[in-house]
Simulated assay, not measured.
Amino acid sequence: MSHMLNVHKLTRRQALAAGAAALAMPFIARTAFAARELRIFTWEGYGEPQWVKPFEEKTGARAKVAYTLSVDEMFAKMQASKGSDYDVIAFDTSMFGRYIDDSLVQPIDVGKIPNAANLVPAFRQVAPIRRGDKQYGVPFAWGSIPLIYDKGAFPAAPDSWEVMWDPQYAQQMIALDDTNNYLVTVAIALGIKDPFNWTDSDFEKVKQKAIEQKGLLLTYYNGNDGGVDIFASSGIKLMLSAGEPQLPALIKRGVNAGLTIPKEGAIGWLDNWTISAGATDVDLAHAWIDVCLEKSVGAAVSDHAHYGNVTDQAANERNGYTYGDRLVWLQSPEDWNRRVKLWNEVKAS
């Protein structure tokens, strides 16, 4: 998510329909996983009953799912344990450089993932998840970091990110508290040609633009539920969103909300499953990824979790996830530590 993107834990998880069809995994016997536990660290919506249950039934293993609130938290926890606390994690394309360089993830054997054949063509060759001839990730879900707005205040969708610097909406706006997604969005709003490779001048422009916005925001927020709760209860008109799932969550809360991709564009994220360097059972980790690439799981990702999926294009189309050509896909930044330092300076200003 996550992302996330980033996509985070909702106020109440929406359980998907139980009783999904058993998924075949002919490459390994159930007994090989007996009494084992797979430790999964991921985003809300990525560990749902519709695929957790078939995984457990087919392997005999238990899936222990923990959820993260931000990419920063996920990396910090993985770094602290050198990956030994988790077996499988999910993060977007921009983070692979950091994880690979810090030896926190290991290469994936695609031969142990028969359902990789289900990937739609656009997600079969993703450069950021590869290092040389080794593949470190398998695509799972995608989405954006869009602008969400109150339709009562905006009968027509705002067409530019500049609306979030408009003083007339002071204290009626909130923004995602996330180093990467927030700063890249500011760079996109500024029209910086390459939002992932900044000059010294770009760093200063982004910093000043972010500080200017901070004075207009009611607050920064963490997680889908945090943004939804504040938006629904505090008269919010505009939100730098954590992703598509926030829209149905707001509508469910009675908010007449809309989602838009401004003319400058918006971040597009592509989350991938990857295997921790500290995984205790690598075959079990591959088995999890294989289950997640069932076409039925792809449909559920879009129909119920409200993300774009990588195996069922028809599900993407019926859910309106057709704006991929307007997104700026995340990449690794030129200097992650420098960006973190800048973000901390903005929040401390």
Rank of each mutant, 00 (worst) to 15 (best):
D229M: 03
D229H: 01
F231C: 05
F231E: 03
A232T: 07
A232Y: 04
G235N: 11
K237V: 07
M239A: 11
M239W: 09
L240N: 14
L240F: 14
S241V: 13
S241C: 15
S241E: 10
A242Q: 14
A242H: 09
G243I: 15
E244N: 15
P245I: 15
P245Q: 14
Q246H: 06
Q246Y: 04
L247V: 14
P248R: 13
A249L: 15
A249F: 13
L250I: 05
I251H: 13
K252E: 15
K252L: 14
R253K: 15
G254A: 13
V255S: 05
A257E: 04
A257P: 04
G258V: 09
L259F: 05
L259C: 06
T260S: 05
I261E: 03
K263F: 03
K263C: 03
E264V: 06
E264P: 06
I267Q: 06
G268P: 03
G268I: 06
L270C: 05
L270H: 10
D271M: 07
D271F: 04
N272Y: 10
W273S: 08
I275M: 06
S276E: 08
S276T: 03
A279F: 07
A279S: 12
T280W: 06
D281N: 14
D283N: 15
D283E: 15
A285L: 11
A285K: 12
A285D: 07
H286F: 11
A287F: 10
A287D: 05
W288K: 13
W288N: 10
V291W: 08
V291Q: 11
C292N: 14
E294T: 08
E294I: 08
K295P: 09
S296V: 09
S296K: 12
V297S: 07
A299Q: 14
A299V: 10
V301H: 05
V301W: 12
V301F: 13
S302C: 10
H306Y: 04
Y307I: 03
G308T: 09
G308C: 07
N309S: 04
T311H: 03
Q313I: 10
A315E: 09
A315W: 06
A315I: 13
N316P: 15
N316A: 13
E317V: 14
E317F: 08
N319A: 11
N319P: 08
N319T: 15
N319H: 12
G320S: 13
Y321D: 11
Y321T: 10
T322S: 07
T322L: 12
Y323I: 05
G324L: 02
V328E: 00
V328Q: 01
V328N: 02
W329N: 00
Q331M: 04
Q331R: 06
S332W: 00
P333C: 01
P333E: 01
E334K: 01
D335R: 00
D335I: 02
N337A: 02
R338S: 01
V340L: 03
K341P: 00
K341D: 03
K341Y: 00
L342I: 01
W343S: 02
E345L: 01
V346D: 02
